[in-house]
Every structure is written in structure tokens, then in C-alpha cells.
Amino acid sequence: MAAPTNRRHAWGEGVLLLLIGLFCVFPFYWMVTTSLKTQVVALESPPVWWFTPTLANYREVLFVDKVGPALINSLIVAVSTTALAVGLGTPAAYALARFEFRGKRDLWFWFITNRFVSPVVLAFPVFLIARETGLRDTHIALILMYLTFTLPIVIWICTDQFRSIPHELDEAAMLEGASQWRIFRSICLPLAMPGVAVSSILSFIFSWNELLFAYILAPKAAKTAPAMAVTFMEGYDVPYGKIMATSTLIVVPVLIFALLASKHLVRGLTMGAVK
């Protein structure tokens, strides 16, 4: 009696899982297949599912439309800002987790608020500042501005991580006369590596995906890939294949990183609110 119900249950559940999976993955399938279509095929109505694929769109966007350099810019900016955020953020996280001092709560609140600030608030003043300082259209301008969201991510996740390290270890080291810096570097940081890794991956994803700062601050030399994707939207002609090829090139690296960090992604996105 129980067995058939269970099997039927399992079937129902399987179908449900399949639907959930399709719901998530189908747009990516459509993006990739559209990127392999010529403009004529992409504009077939109704859309076609079987066709002879071509890599022409990729060849064109990478080598003619300068999406290649834009991807390199994105990489430079995302890696640099992540490294900087980790370098600045881990000591701060350590201090928040281990030291007692006045104003700690306010400081922590200030860090956390940055997660809520919309880039559109900062973008225009930063444009004016970049104009005065000559940082417009440089990688540095983007690397610095991306700290507004990468640094808080690193601080939050790593603060959590440092707190979970038992105090006995550093107490023993302190008795032996080690400085706080040494304890941080040699004992706690190695133990906090999982948190550092997760926050790095998240910083990378967020920086890679950013559009508004890039769009306003880096019109040409430092133009990143998402800003590049937007430039195909000329009202005269909408090259679906090229747009989707560019989109695929932008999305694939972040999806790989997201899958690598999938176990910790939720914790990262909720800023440690959910374990």
C-alpha cells in the first residue's frame, strides 16, 4: 500500500523538480541558441528551435565590436577591486569580531548601510569628482567605486567567520607574546580562508555585473562588458544574435563562479543573516 503512493509521490516530485530546473535554465538555453543564429534566423517568426548554428556573432563581437577588450577591462576591474577589498576588509572584520571599543555598533551599522545605497546616488557626484581628478575613464575610478559594495561584503562575511574561530588559539598565542597583527596574520586569517574565498567570489560577481558606474564613468578606454552590451541597443537595428553572444560571454564567467560558490552564495547574498 505504502510503496505505490511513495512512488507516485516521487514521480510528482520529480516532475516538479524538472519544472523548477527548466524555469531557471531555459532563458540561458535561449540566450545561447539565439547567439548562434544569424540575424535572418533570429528574426524568424515564429522563432525556430532547430537551425544551423554559426559562430559568426562571437567572431564579430569579440574582434570587430571590441567586446574582447571590454571583457579584459571587466576582469581587471573585478579582480583588482576584490583584492583591494580583501586587503582592506579582513583586518577590519577581525577588529570588529575580536576587539572591544566605543562606537563599534555605529561603525558596523555604517558598513551595513552601504549595502542599501543605490549606485545612482553616488554616480553623478563621482563623475564630477573624476572629472576634476582626471580619473574619468580609468580602471582606478571603477576599482575605487566598486569598493562601496565589495568592502562591506568582505567585512560582513569575514566578521562572521572570525567570530566562529575559537578564542583559545589566539589566547595561547597572546600569552606567548605575539602581537595582534601576528595573531591575525598567522592564526586567524588562515582559519578564516573559507569566508575570504566566499566573499571574494561574491565581490567578483557583483563587480563583474555592475552597470551604472561603468556606464557613466568609463565611456571608452576602461569600458566594461555590461556597458558594452548596452551599446548595441541602437534604435536603427537590433542585432539579436550579437546582443545574445555578448550576453553569453558576460554571463558565463559569473555563472561558473556562482556554481563554485553555490553552497555559500545564499549566506553571502544575505550578508550572513542566514547561515
Binding site: 531557471c24 535554465v25 532563458p27 540561458f28 540566450m31 560577481i205 563583474w208 555585473n209 552597470l211 555590461p226 552590451a229 548596452v230 550576453s247 558576460i250 554571463v251 559569473v254 555563472l255 563562479f257 556562482a258 556554481l259 553555490s262 552564495l265 547574498l269
Partner: peptide, 10 residues
């Protein structure tokens, strides 16, 4: 995991 990591512009 895929949708939430996707570049919003894309």
C-alpha cells in the same frame, strides 16, 4: 543559483 548571479543588464 544561476538566475540570481546573472548580470542584471543581461
Amino acid at each position: 543559483v544561476l538566475p540570481m548571479a546573472t548580470t542584471y543588464a543581461v
